[in-house]
Design a protein around this nucleic acid. Structure first.
Lengths: 124, 124
DNA sequence: TTATATGCAAATGATTTGCGTAGTC
DNA sequence: GACTACGCAAATCATTTGCATATAA
């Protein structure tokens, strides 16, 4: 657990904005000016493998990272691309229904909602 | 509607494997050996804007394309990365429940299942 | 000390774009 | 004939990696 790794983890837990690797880098740089982007990527990978953070593969070109690891889903704003949490029970019912009909062994699911965030609704 | 665009559309409608841009390119090249990858990308974009095909932003690094445009979701194999269709009613109930509690204006949702495909189950 | 992580810069992979030519309506 | 699309190659963007040095256990 290096300084860099700790700072990255702390910044991620502090935020609820689901930042991209780049945004994490910018934040970490305020505390460790010499940190490199490569280090940020490497640590985001390691931390998500350890289950300390979550790597999100939602729509859009960049991956995003989440300091919250409990099972929850996300809404993405179609206008500005921002992401928020949605408190929602896991979809066990739907997964189980699929288990009955699919040839696949079902492990889990990923649910993302698409919408317009309050901010963008106002501006529109 | 150029030859290239028609071939791309036809190949996509012929397949149910949810190919990447690259795979579409390989297939199209069998019929039009001089077609370029740039053209494939441009046409996949245009066709999906017209609603003739669907651009899928699922997990993984590459986008995938689907000749079927009706609302349906997908299972991704965690081992080999292949993608299959899942016949499933749209999640209107869940979306409506969210409409009651979220500040967002909910437009739609994207649901992807993760599992192991029959092929990979056998090999394991 | 000894493995592991870092910073830097270069490499990779997917996708996009500029430009001059060719094809479609 | 005018507009749009094409082929090609170079550019871009996110992410990954090789390597020599620095840090943590």
């Amino acid at each position: 657990m290096t300084q860099q790794r700790r700072v990255i983890l702390e910044e991620l837990q502090k935020l609820d904005s689901h930042p991209t690797a780049d945004e994490v880098y910018e934040r970490a740089r305020r505390r460790l000016p010499r940190i490199s982007l490569g280090t940020v990527y490497r640590n985001l990978e390691i931390l998500s493998e350890c289950g300390l953070i979550q790597k999100l593969e939602l729509g859009g070109t960049q991956k995003r990272f989440d300091g919250r690891v409990e099972n929850h889903c996300h809404v993405r704003c179609i206008r500005c691309g921002c992401i928020s949490d949605v408190p929602m029970a896991p979809l066990t019912t739907i997964e189980n229904r699929l288990r009955g009909t699919s040839d696949y062994e079902i492990i889990g699911s990923r649910l993302e909602f698409i919408g317009v965030c309050p901010q963008c609704k106002k501006e529109h």
